[in-house]
Design a protein around this nucleic acid. Structure first.
Lengths: 169, 169
DNA sequence: ATTTTATGTCAGCCTTGTTGACTTTCCAAG
DNA sequence: CTTGGAAAGTCAACAAGGCTGACATAAAAT
């Protein structure tokens, strides 16, 4: 279990695993997520949209031409739930839905000019906060941040997260 | 704009601030938060409760005897919204509401035995995932994780977060 | 005595999750 | 070629949990 070397080293190195430290991590996650969504939430409210719309816009932007089914897997909601959001985005002219060329059951999703504009507005707000946090914490902290977040995901989520980076760009 | 010194040093140190890196951080936050809430969500569902109940239980446990108003400030919801949740928790015998001794307008909230049992079940599930993530990432990463999360909060949230630690224990 | 504060409640709305039922399309087995 | 199942998407209806607004009560503060 514990290393034999200098007596305190084992105990001290595990201080970050005490229940108290874990609780602080849990609460930090709770409050930080609120900050994380605060800026987009304000923008969305002024457009009468919610977080669900933001998520759809974000991932359509990331993978233009993605199908509804694909988006479903990423967002982890039911297709009926997603459909409602997509319908309003399409009606409002932010998203375009094209019938698949090979498989006509599929709908391929694209952001229109207006959709891209809103996406930029939302993501710039979110990046701006993230940039400030990264800058304040420094590169080493950012590396740790990313490591812990990735370790916190379910295996399936981690797979999606990593797949996202490969396909991107 | 760019520093004049050794050409690559400034640029390399700022690699973590590129839009691409920021986007990855944003998506990591999204997927990690899902993992973060997945275990409690499963437990809550089996009790017919939601995240709103979890949040109330968590913070009542953290500060036994806290008032409704206090909880409202921490949770950032309306009293009507919180009241609905508290009412069911009190009806179900998980939370006890005592009229204040000094100020009889206030209600002081406490977890009952049953409430504490559910709290332990929920928080142990959450700590368990956090512990695994911390262990996988190591102490240095955890320190960075906490730094970035704290920098991501609004000033008000950070104040609450830090106040939480002082009062605790 | 009056006003303010803390809490609770009712009614009604919105977003976003859910399930169930349905249509259209594709594909593969007969 | 037809037919039956699977897959993609849509529509309808419901529930949880946010929200606002209006109002009631009791206690504290002025």
């Amino acid at each position: 279990m514990a290393e034999r070397g200098t007596a305190p080293s084992g105990g001290e190195n595990l201080l970050f695993l005490t229940d108290e430290q874990l609780r602080k991590g849990i609460e930090a996650m709770f409050f930080a997520y609120r900050g994380f969504t605060a800026d987009p939430d304000r923008i969305l409210e002024s457009h009468s949209y919610g977080r669900a719309h933001h998520r759809a816009i974000h991932f359509i932007n990331r993978a233009p031409g993605t199908t509804v089914n694909n988006l479903l897997a990423i967002l982890g909601v039911t297709k009926q739930s997603l459909n409602r959001v997509l319908r309003t985005l399409i009606e409002d002219g932010l998203v375009e839905s094209r019938v698949g060329a090979r498989d006509k059951r599929e709908r391929h999703l694209y952001l229109t000019e207006a959709g891209q504009a809103l996406e930029r507005e939302l993501s710039e707000a979110q990046r701006s906060r993230m940039r400030a946090a990264y800058r304040a914490a420094g590169p080493a902290a950012v590396a740790g941040f990313r490591q812990v977040l990735e370790a916190m995901m379910d295996a399936e989520q981690r797979r999606q997260f990593n797949a996202m980076s490969e396909g991107g760009s």
